[in-house]
């Protein structure tokens, strides 16, 4: 269980995120949604322990994460940045770096490490790409490689910053299914998402952010009804009771 308590965070002297209280349970998938610049990535990075909060705390199963050593935290939390990592390096080499938190000097891979790397490649179905250069892959393949690196890191809590941006619809759905299956296996998956449709379809809980504050934290069905989507995005959300699907339409202001 991850608990954010009265969390304020930001860059330099600018407080971007104000007074956030959230709790994430194991075995569930959560989405953080909100307009560009509302602070969702900042919140995610701070929750993942990559930025120091200005005030408030983040606790993982009762332990404040500021009391956990970075290497140890990296065995509990993994984080997928919005962009980066890719270039003149083979797929296997990049995925292998997921084992870094488990490598003491002189940084030699154990049999256990190699097994984790192989299984991560297999889970994402990219074993046959293992010896290719990351830079030569398509966007969807690259994203899979980056996610395989997180799988090799083998953490209970997984933070993903916009994992589906720039991917075509097939790759998006495939990744979301993968994340859901991770949650079903007892991991906690927390991601920021642009795509409301995906967020409502796949999440167990949705945090809606507006101007650096969380204005609603509830399961999708409730989020659609409580008016937070209208307030944050200016669109209304409703659920079709027959199919269980969510629809979004622009609000008329009259």
């Amino acid at each position: 269980m991850i608990v954010l308590d009265k969390l304020c965070c930001g860059y330099g002297r600018d407080t971007v995120v104000h007074d956030v209280n959230l709790s994430f349970e194991a075995g569930k998938l959560y989405s953080i949604i909100g307009k560009n610049g509302c602070g969702k990535s900042t919140l995610l990075m701070t929750a993942a322990g990559l930025m120091k909060p200005f005030s408030g705390s983040i606790t993982a199963d009762g332990t404040d994460i500021s009391a956990i050593k970075p290497k140890e935290l990296a065995r509990k939390f993994s984080f997928l940045p919005q962009s980066g990592a890719g270039g003149d390096i083979t797929v296997r080499a990049l995925v292998s770096h997921g084992r870094f938190p488990y490598l003491p000097y002189p940084r030699r891979y154990s049999a256990e490490d190699l097994r984790c790397i192989d299984s991560a490649l297999e889970t994402l179905g990219i074993t046959e790409l293992a010896d290719r250069k990351v830079s030569g892959l398509s966007g969807g393949q690259k994203q899979k490689v980056r996610i395989a690196m997180l799988f090799a890191q083998d953490t209970d809590v997984i933070f993903l910053d916009e994992p589906t941006t720039y991917l075509d619809i097939g790759a998006r759905l495939e990744l979301m299914e993968l994340f859901s299956s991770l949650a079903a296996k007892g991991r906690t998956v927390i991601m920021t998402l642009h795509d409301l449709d995906l967020a409502f379809r796949c999440s167990d809980g949705i945090a809606v952010m507006k101007n650096g504050s969380v204005i609603s934290f509830a399961p999708p069905g409730e989020t659609a009804k409580n008016g937070s989507v209208e307030s944050a995005f200016g669109v209304s959300a409703f659920r079709d009771e027959h199919s269980g699907q969510y629809f979004f339409t622009s609000c008329s202001k009259d």
């Binding site: 993942a48 990296a74 984080f79 390096i89 870094f100």
Partner: peptide, 18 residues
């Protein structure tokens, strides 16, 4: 090996505990 991980970018390096 640390150089490899660092060249993945600061955010990734930090998230790997470096």
């Amino acid at each position: 090996r640390d150089l490899d991980v660092l060249s993945l970018g600061d955010t990734t390096a930090k998230s790997l505990g470096m």
